[in-house]
Design a binder for these strands. Structure first.
Length: 405
DNA sequence: TCTGGGGTCCTAGGACCC
DNA sequence: TCTGGGGTCCTAGGACCC
């Protein structure tokens, strides 16, 4: 989806169309006051001059999305709001409204599912779609189906998206970036040299800041240069697994399927404080936040129907270093008191001399509550639920190898 | 001028078991 | 008295993604 959060906001506030708008700020909503002052007035009639400006924002936080008009000024996702305010002080700042974005997320995904049922979620604003078996999915290299999806989403939601069509997910993801916003791009295997190899390594989904810096240090700037390296050389510098992946990816090879169903692995809640807090001096405040995080996490678990037995905490110190601790319980839990109890034990095992800027609570090793309750009286069934399904290896299927061992 | 929140996956060492 | 090899689980940290 194109500038998803910002585009959803523009549906509510069409008077902001064409203006630099940024969404962000984790703190108190900057426009609460605005909405209160104009209670009763339809949202689209609130005068532009009434909206809060980025220059007036005081506090922490980053931009989650910027309109294309705002991007002209050099502001973009993940940039600190204070820095963005210097680049584009006149930008309008709106708070994030996840509930609203989730609504539109479901709406556009429902449209896609009605057309092409093999869809993989990639977060709130992105999906992979398998065109292979969709009627007409091969016409004009996929362009016809891509256009149909764009048109259907726009009619249902008023939102635009960009589509990349390619033989695999890796190339499709890159293709989707070629023609933003509201564009379609088709990449065939024979386009590797002309369309992919000139790109910076960082454009590849899976090469982040660290790997990119290391590649640069080795004199590798583009995907073409990466593709020119031998497999053993890459393995030597990046390890067996990542090295092999880098090699395959640079050659446009990716055989990962479109996964339509998946179980959550963990759930968490975390918060960055308005100011750094000290475990002793700000004990009360920290304790209240801690309890609140556990309560919200418990709500999440119960609403989604999961329990978990690995409970953990995450701290971010004032110097931005991160510490985590976790603890696995004998039985899964989903209530705030149990989470708070277990997380509290974790807190005792972590250094607390430095001031903290973030506290988080996490729960993993999830089981579906319904299945756990159903196995209530059966210790064996419970035991099986707590152990993840064993990985079936190639060796198991090979009678010769199996007999040897 | 400091840098959000919610995730997944990988690695590596140690405990523990057979 | 000195010492194997394989496997799983737990824990901590880190890279990366949206």
């Amino acid at each position: 989806m194109d500038a998803f959060y910002a585009s959803v906001e523009l549906l509510r506030y069409p008077q902001l169309k064409g203006l630099p708008v940024v969404i962000g700020g984790s703190r108190r909503a900057p426009d609460d006051e605005l909405l209160a002052r104009h209670a009763g007035l339809p949202l689209h009639e609130i005068p532009v001059a009434e909206f809060p400006l980025l220059r007036d924002y005081v506090g922490r936080g980053v931009i989650t999305t910027a309109t294309y008009a705002a991007r002209q000024f050099g502001v973009g996702s993940a940039m600190g709001l204070m820095k963005a305010a210097r680049l584009c002080p006149q930008a309008i700042l709106l708070p994030v409204d996840f509930a609203e974005y989730r609504r539109f997320s479901k709406a556009f995904k429902d449209v896609i599912l009605s057309i092409a049922p093999v869809m993989e979620n990639r977060g709130v604003d992105e999906v992979y779609i398998d065109f292979t078996e969709v009627p007409g999915g091969q016409r004009e290299g996929g362009r016809v189906l891509a256009r149909l999806i764009q048109k259907s989403i726009f009619e249902a939601t008023g939102l635009t998206c960009s589509v990349g069509v390619a033989p695999n997910k890796l190339l499709a993801k890159m293709a989707s970036e070629f023609n933003k916003p509201n564009g379609i791009s088709i990449v065939q295997p024979e386009d590797l040299q002309t369309l992919i190899w000139p790109l910076a390594c960082r454009k590849l989904n899976g090469i982040g800041p660290k790997a990119d810096a290391k590649l640069k240090g080795l004199g590798i700037e583009t995907l073409g240069q990466l593709a020119a390296q031998s497999l053993p050389w890459l393995v030597q510098h990046f390890g067996k697994s990542y090295g092999a992946w880098l090699h395959a990816a640079a050659w446009g090879r990716d055989d990962k399927p479109v996964v339509t169903q998946s179980e959550p692995v963990s759930m968490s809640r975390e918060t960055t404080f308005d100011r750094d807090l000290h475990a002793v001096r700000d004990r009360q405040e920290l304790g209240a936040i801690f309890t609140d995080l556990c309560e919200r996490l418990a709500e999440d678990l119960q609403r989604k129907g999961y329990m978990g037995r690995t409970v953990g905490i995450k701290l971010r110190y004032d110097d931005f270093r991160i510490a985590t601790r976790d603890h696995t319980l004998a039985l899964p839990v989903d209530d705030a008191a149990a989470l708070r109890q277990a997380a509290g034990q974790c807190l005792k095992r972590v250094p607390l001399t430095r001031r903290l800027r973030l506290l988080g609570v996490r729960v993993g090793a999830l089981v579906r509550t319904r299945e756990w309750v159903a196995a209530a009286g059966d210790p064996l069934a419970r035991e099986l639920l707590l152990r993840p399904a064993p990985q079936t290896s190639e060796q198991d299927a090979d009678p010769y190898t199996a007999s040897l061992f």
